[in-house]
């Protein structure tokens, strides 16, 4: 994963992006970010921090410092499995998991991830299938993920797929809701200019406009 990691070790004042923290803090409850005391409880609680390049505590500090590129291109947010241990333990009640999601959304939107990296592809495919039919179809989702990332891996997983199939737990059937139009009109309403504008005015949920 080295190729998309930030290389710079020193960032000068002029290179910092002070708007970054405001963008992240615009998620519901995101302003608590400013109260972080850098105690490290989040990093200590995180079952995944041993695998991360920057610990959750460091990520908060980096967001506040304005290290946009370093945060968007790091491995940490992709490793977050959203288990919420950090969120419940944080003495300042910072919603760390939500912040991880916000960074993830930004990185996906701006395409800051290596080619064929499975997590954004999985998220996109999941999103598309729900947008299209209102539900996710597990079997199809997994198949698409493999086809778009590493089709060769598919062969290695055929054993597992077959066993699941034989146990009646795997199917390629497309799951769908009946009143798709109803759901679509809800989603569409959120995309209208009026709604986007009103959200901007509220300073809320900027993620859709970044």
């Amino acid at each position: 994963m080295e190729e998309w990691r930030g290389w710079r070790k020193i960032s000068y004042e002029s290179e910092l992006d002070h708007l970054f923290v405001n963008e992240i803090a615009s998620i519901p409850g995101g302003d608590k970010l400013f109260t972080c005391i850098q105690c490290g409880t989040c990093s200590g609680m995180c079952p995944l921090s041993p695998y991360m390049d920057y610990t959750p505590r460091q990520i908060i500090a980096m967001i506040r410092a304005g290290l946009r590129w370093e945060v968007l291109s790091c491995y940490t947010t992709w490793l977050c499995a959203s288990c919420y241990s950090c969120t419940v333990e944080c003495p300042k009640e910072i919603k760390l998991t939500d912040i991880m999601y916000a960074v993830k959304r930004m990185a996906i939107k701006q395409g800051v991830y290596p080619k064929k990296f499975p997590i954004p592809i999985l998220a996109n495919e999941f999103f598309k299938s729900v947008e299209d039919s209102g539900r996710s179809s597990e079997g199809r989702l997994i198949l698409k993920l493999f086809l778009k990332t590493n089709p060769l891996k598919l062969f290695r997983q055929t054993g597992l797929g077959l066993s699941l199939f034989l146990k009646g737990r795997f199917s390629l059937k497309k799951e769908t809701i009946q009143r798709k139009n109803e759901l679509r009109s809800v989603i569409k309403a959120l995309e209208t200019e009026h709604m986007v504008k009103s959200r901007e005015e509220l300073g809320l949920l900027k993620e859709t406009t970044i």
Partner: peptide, 18 residues
């Protein structure tokens, strides 16, 4: 009746509002 996806985890990574 006619329930839809809850919008969890993977979906959250694309749009929170939706």
């Amino acid at each position: 009746e006619d329930w839809n996806c809850c919008g969890a985890t993977a979906y959250m990574s694309i749009s929170e509002l939706k």
